[in-house]
């Protein structure tokens, strides 16, 4: 499957975009031409120049530098969200699928309730409860998303615990945890990768949306959604302000979605023909 993925130019392009963006985010302090917080009020709304590659915003801050620093909350926090989600989902799913009985019943009923809310609402509720802060947004996203993974992993666990090689390693005497992590996770890694890459796109949208609403990253910290919120206020006079952050979000989310689709096609060639 991996080999097939590396043959697909679209998948390579998507991974390239994501890696390049991540690299820019890591190297932001060195790559950025200006301090993202430095005001230059005389030069506000300046057009692109050598000094300010993408111009300046309403306080005369360098848009390009803010974009680079904005990668950090957007991309890295969404990756963190996914890590937390998958971690929690795997633990709950394996627990439910492996122990069955009461544990399974309780976890699955909680999952049902979680899935019966639209995710946006839960996130808003959690953020309202814990206070307006980007950390709470991440916690809330994990809190709502884990249920999907738990359900999927539970099904896989039930399927694989009945399989021969698991029964075999149990008879050889390996511990339960060892059996599950060693044998089952690699089996569902592919499915997990599809879901995770699609959901990374979702997480990016989510973080930027909440920041746009003012519930996530707070000014003056640079973040794409927050930048768009600032751009909204000057939309009539300086509409060009909303181009760069918007395009960046679309590109990053698009890359994640496309990668997810490519992974799915590599996994199940039948759907690829459509």
């Amino acid at each position: 499957m991996l080999r097939q993925l590396f043959k697909n130019p679209m998948a390579l392009l998507c991974m390239g975009v994501l890696l390049f963006t991540a690299l820019l985010g890591i190297l932001a302090p060195w790559a950025a031409p200006n301090d993202p917080y430095a005001n230059d009020i005389l030069n506000k709304f300046a057009g692109p120049s050598w000094q300010y590659p993408l111009g300046t915003d309403h306080l005369g801050r360098c848009v390009f530098s803010r974009m680079l620093f904005g990668i950090r909350p957007t991309l890295f926090l969404s990756l963190l969200t996914m890590l937390g989600t998958i971690g929690l989902g795997v633990i709950m799913g394996v627990a439910a699928g492996y122990f069955r009985g009461v544990v399974d019943e309780i976890i699955m009923r909680v999952v049902d309730v979680m899935l019966s809310f639209p995710s946006q609402i839960i996130i808003l509720a959690v953020v309202a409860l814990l206070g307006v802060d980007i950390r709470n947004v991440v916690v809330a996203s994990i809190f709502i998303k884990w249920a999907w993974y738990a359900r999927m992993i539970r099904t896989a666990t039930i399927k694989y615990t009945g399989m021969n090689f698991v029964l075999f390693s149990r008879s050889v005497g390996s511990g339960n945890f060892y059996i599950l992590t060693r044998h089952m996770l690699p089996c569902i890694a592919a499915e997990l990768a599809v879901l995770a890459s699609l959901d990374t796109g979702w997480a990016i949208l989510n973080i930027s949306t909440l920041s746009f609403l003012g519930l996530g990253v707070q000014a003056p910290v640079p973040e794409w959604g927050a930048m768009l919120n600032e751009a909204k206020n000057v939309m009539v006079s300086n509409p060009e302000q909303m181009i760069a952050p918007g395009v960046a979000v679309v590109a990053l989310v698009g890359a994640c979605n496309m990668l997810g689709d490519c992974l799915r096609d590599a996994l199940d060639p039948r759907t690829a023909r459509q």
Binding site: G201, L205, S208, T209, F212, L213, G225, L228, A231, K232, M235, V236, P239, M242, G246, V249, V250, A251, V253, G254, N257, M258
Partner: peptide
């Protein structure tokens, strides 16, 4: 379809306001 699933809702709204209304 691909573009629409990757675009943040609020950005679409802003673009529409800018193009259609302004």
């Amino acid at each position: 379809v691909f573009a629409a699933t990757a675009m943040p809702v609020y950005w679409v709204g802003l673009l529409l306001i800018w193009i259609v209304s302004i």
